[in-house]
Design a protein around this nucleic acid. Sequence first.
DNA 1: ACCCTTGCAATGGTATGATGATTAGCACTT
DNA 2: AAGTGCTAATCATCATACCATTGCAAGGGT
Lengths: 248, 248
Amino acid sequence: MASTKAKPVGTGDDTDMFKAVSLNRVSQAIVDQVKTLLRQGRLKPGDRLPSERELCERFGVSRVTVREALRVLEAGGLVDIRVGAHGGAFVTTPTSQQIGEGLADLLNLSPLTALQVTEARQVFELGIVPLVVERATDDDIAALRELVREHQAALEAGDYTMSMSADFHTRVAAATHNPAIEMLVQSFHGPLLMSLLEAQVVAPLMGHRGTEEHAAFIDAIAARDAERAMAIMREHLQRTADRVSHSD
Amino acid sequence: MASTKAKPVGTGDDTDMFKAVSLNRVSQAIVDQVKTLLRQGRLKPGDRLPSERELCERFGVSRVTVREALRVLEAGGLVDIRVGAHGGAFVTTPTSQQIGEGLADLLNLSPLTALQVTEARQVFELGIVPLVVERATDDDIAALRELVREHQAALEAGDYTMSMSADFHTRVAAATHNPAIEMLVQSFHGPLLMSLLEAQVVAPLMGHRGTEEHAAFIDAIAARDAERAMAIMREHLQRTADRVSHSD
DNA sequence: ACCCTTGCAATGGTATGATGATTAGCACTT
DNA sequence: AAGTGCTAATCATCATACCATTGCAAGGGT
């Protein structure tokens, strides 16, 4: 970013003789400073930052600048700003949902097609199956079975939604017991759901077959049969992918 | 909104009779409005939003409020704000790299351990190998070979860096010819590099063996041998993962 | 004629001061 | 004892002013 063309004024050698004094915004500098404190662990979730006016004095800037910095931190999900007597900026940890939302916005603008995103999702969700087979506990399996039961009930009641399918896949990812994986899978479903909803392709029959495959997948997991689990998941994901490509 | 029944306060049914009049901040409302315009496609990448002062009039708010809204949009990577005569807020055309950076930032700030991120990366990079075997063109393979040659030269010159290894993996991902996948792989390397650099574990010997494995991997790809390619990549990633876990 | 400098205008960046809205805690009244 | 109203702390917004940066065009020197 800070290329600073540094057009040679007279000779060719003095490219960096006059270095910029402060290239960035002041508010951005404050944001960076707070982020650094977070990374260093000197600010932990639940901590309260000083009040706006106090921060003004500390940094020697105006309230507008401090507020802009807080806005950026808030938008990034790093702090939660509360008003009132004991209000202020409280440190939080960004949830996967917030991250997914930000990702969805960017993916919206990006030149990526739903097809490409779907393929990436296929790769990832298929790749975690061995981990799931290896690590799923009895509780995980029981929770998944319960989820499928709920979905089948919803299906018969006629109010099965795509987000239920997303819940299943997220819960499967949780069985890896790796939050990073769970978060990524969850993040994928945001943009994906949107592209599906936009196309208005909510076939109920789909849901029927989908939940059946979900159930079969759980059985394979319970039997610790990685091959079968992957085969089921592969086909299951492929059907969704086909649907996306048709609606594209 | 027109209350049909003036339920007296105190009964159990009037939970939502008096709904809040304005839940959100004004600046947040502006952000949402712009986001909606983006989703609807009425604002496209490259478009320029009206100037701050003009937006003030349009929305009927002060400039501070508009600026805070722009800050949020900028933090989300949705607009790019330029100063100067023909400056203003421009809708960004997100490159894969920019999206990857955003994702890396988010992963970075979330409470994930390097180990967890590394495992997610292993899953993903291993999962794309079949796609690479299937789709890599002669150009891809030639580019990869050239990359390895450069790395070996750098190795002998003593200035081999971890980012070179990252370049290799990114180039491999590019061979899937799916920008979404390429972007994700790229985004993984941000936090990973940081965690490795923090631990100061830049073993040159590592680089030697690493590039050898890179070369062997390319050979497997060229031979369209998915099994062998995956085996090599699996071991290669595992060694990196071990290093992370040791430095943790 | 060409190039460089300079001034101008548009625009974002920051500062300052003031006012309103919201909330927790406390004192006061019933 | 319970409810009520006050008060202080804090964020939310506004209005105005001034500075910095940038693109463009006019002007002057070669």
